[in-house]
Design a protein around this nucleic acid. Structure first.
Lengths: 136, 136
DNA sequence: GTTATACCTCGAGCCCACTCTAGGTTTCGG
DNA sequence: CCGAAACCTAGAGTGGGCTCGAGGTATAAC
């Protein structure tokens, strides 16, 4: 079976080898096998698992909670409920983040417009004259 | 003109007074006036400006870059172009974050389904039997 | 076979964004 | 006018997530 070195995996996932070893230290990859001399050998499935780790990270989950999930995976079917619940909760937090980001975007787009018109006028004052104290 | 104390502003923006004082220390609120004895007096417009700071923070901008923006604001119309460019660039990064979050969401939804069916079956094995090594 | 490169661990260091403590002053209700 | 609560500064401490240096072993290319 084909295996991959830590630097190959780092390149694939756009991480550094430092980061991968740090994840290992934090218990996020207990499944990765080693050569007799200690060199890590990553399988395709390991890379798949790390992609889930990255996904959870991208959802804003801290390393320690991701570790809980990994531990549950190691514990087998008895933890299926926890893992399901976790993903359902993640879904909710990501939805909230999307909402938040949408609001942020609206303000930023408004500011793009604000500065475009100000640039055209050569001064910000055109906005100040319209609505006093709006910080528009 | 009505003014607000630091704790009122903290409550309004859902921040701590510590955080607000930290922002001040970092130069994010050079516009906030003081009483002769040094107590900060926030105006409505100051709160508006802080909302923009929060917006930039929510867009992932680090404090130091937000400070640049605040400095540009103090410098007046000569920095209109920089500020416009900054918001256009912010727009792009927020768009990228939205894309990223969408991908994250897809994986999470897939996992919700994965665990829902596994729970119904009582074991994760039903997935393992379908696609070997997919970490689905 | 040797030399360069990649791998390893352990622990220290770094950066960011707060968060809090100590020690002090001010303001405000009764 | 007094005591509680809110304000202030300077600087130390915290937690998360890396990032790196030192010192050493292993493997691969020539």
């Amino acid at each position: 079976m084909k295996t991959f070195s830590i630097s190959e995996v780092a390149k694939e996932l756009d991480l550094t080898v430092y980061t991968l070893r740090y994840y290992d230290k934090e218990g996020l990859m207990p499944f990765v096998e080693r050569t007799p001399s200690g060199t890590r050998l990553f399988k395709e499935t390991d890379i798949g698992a790390l992609k889930i780790v990255e996904c959870l990270k991208a959802s804003g989950m801290p390393i320690k909670e991701i570790k809980n999930f990994i531990d549950w995976c190691s514990d087998g079917d008895s933890t299926l409920q926890q893992r399901y619940d976790m993903f359902v909760e993640r879904k909710a937090t990501v939805e909230a983040q999307m909402e938040e980001l949408k609001k942020t975007m609206e303000i930023i787009e408004h500011k793009c417009f604000y500065y475009k018109t100000a640039l055209e006028a050569g001064t910000e004052d055109i906005h100040k004259n319209n609505k006093i104290g709006s910080f528009d």
